[in-house]
Simulated assay, not measured.
Amino acid sequence: MNRRTFLFQSTALAAGAMIFPTACARNSNSKSTDMMAPGLQVYTIREALAEDFQGSMQRIADLGYVNIELFAYGDGQYFGNSIPEVKTMMSDMGLQVKSSHVATGWTSPDAVGTMTNNWEQTVQDAAELGQDYIVLAYLTEEERQSMDDYKKVAELLNSCGETAKNAGLQMAYHNHAFEFETMDDQVPYDLLLSECDEDLVKFELDLYWTRRAGVDPIAYFEKHSGRFPLWHVKDMAAGEDQFFAAVGEGVIDWENMFSHAETAGLDYYFVEQDATRSGEPFKEIEKSIGYLENIL
């Protein structure tokens, strides 16, 4: 993957130790018992990955992370590494790829490896890596101009979810804050929950963006129990700018949040920090894993 492609996909996609009995029972035939081990969405260290993919992944493993969510898939590669190469690296380091982020492809039709361009191969590659989930990461502004657009997104998720299911994977949708902004007297996120098939499409709730939208995630867990098997564990700093923070250094009550994991249907969580004030993302994710290991 060249730098131009990486930067484009990065922009487009940017945008615990306990095991719960019901989650274990639900996934005993398809998922290993490390489903609640520390996870990381590697977008957090995107610049380091572009410089040294293998070395950066080793640093993640050395910090104690186990489960990985990838991004920037393109034409059978991650950052210039083939799927067999990535698979070997992960195995050697004791890392497990549980999920990956993808785009619709509607605004980047030439990009190979999206939900509308070579989706079958994208799913096959995800299955080869041993993933359980594949996630629509972000909707560009052009893709979300109306509620009809969101209905088209739901249709695409259902269709792609069927392909994923046939390969043994689960399709999911990852939110930002804009999905909770009322449009035509409706909440787009609620429409997605309504229009998406409960079996074919699950939801990865980004707890930072949900909080930033002024929404209570626990209320969603209780209303739509079992539909949130993936979380982005991302903290919010105190202050008007609501900047990103290392987990445990912000305003989100994580102990309370994780106490509702069973209701949510949580399988895996992934630490993520979109940006850092320090400019040292590895130090930030080290603080995050340290905090989570203390409370879980």
Rank of each mutant, 00 (worst) to 15 (best):
Leu200Gly: 02
Tyr268Cys: 04
Gly74Ala: 13
Leu7Ser: 04
Asp184Asn: 12
Val66Leu: 05
Asn294Phe: 01
Leu193Ala: 08
Val135Cys: 09
Val102Glu: 04
Phe243Trp: 07
Gly55Ile: 11
Ile252Asp: 04
Leu129Arg: 06
Asp216Ala: 02
Glu293Ser: 12
Gly80Pro: 02
Ile289Ser: 03
Trp209Ser: 00
Arg227Leu: 05
Thr182Ser: 13
Phe270Trp: 11
Glu286Tyr: 08
Tyr65Gly: 02
Leu292Glu: 00
Phe71Asn: 03
Ala177Ser: 15
Met1Ser: 12
Tyr220Gly: 02
Ser82Tyr: 12
Glu69His: 10
Thr11Ala: 10
Gly113Tyr: 06
Ile60Lys: 06
Leu49Trp: 13
His101Val: 14
Ala15Arg: 04
Glu51Ala: 13
Glu143Thr: 12
Thr263Asn: 02
Asp34Tyr: 11
His176Tyr: 10
Met57Pro: 01
Glu240Ile: 14
Asn27Trp: 14
Pro21Cys: 06
Asn118Cys: 10
Glu198Lys: 05
Ser82His: 10
Ser159Met: 09
Glu155Ile: 14
Gly80Asn: 00
His174Met: 01
Glu204Phe: 12
Ile45Trp: 10
Asn27Leu: 06
Gly279His: 11
Met36Lys: 11
Asp75Asn: 15
Gln124Val: 11
Lys87Cys: 02
Gln54Ala: 14
Lys152Phe: 04
Ala238Gln: 12
Val123Cys: 09
Gly279Tyr: 13
Pro21His: 09
Gln96Val: 13
Ala25Pro: 01
Ala245Thr: 11
Ala219Ser: 10
Ser28Cys: 05
Arg144Ala: 09
His260Leu: 07
Gly39Asp: 10
Ala237Gln: 15
Arg4Ala: 14
Gln273Phe: 06
Ala137Pro: 00
Glu51Ser: 14
Tyr78His: 08
Val135Lys: 02
Val247Glu: 01
Thr122Trp: 07
Gln58Ala: 11
Phe244Ala: 00
Ala48His: 15
Lys31Cys: 08
His232Cys: 00
Ser100Gly: 04
Leu266Phe: 09
Lys283Cys: 04
Ile83Arg: 00
Val135Arg: 00
Tyr65Met: 03
Thr114Cys: 05
Gly39His: 07
Glu255Gln: 15
Ala14Tyr: 09
Lys87Tyr: 08
Pro281Cys: 09
Val247Thr: 09
Lys223Ala: 15
Asn67Gly: 04
Met90Phe: 15
Asp92Ala: 08
Asp274Glu: 12
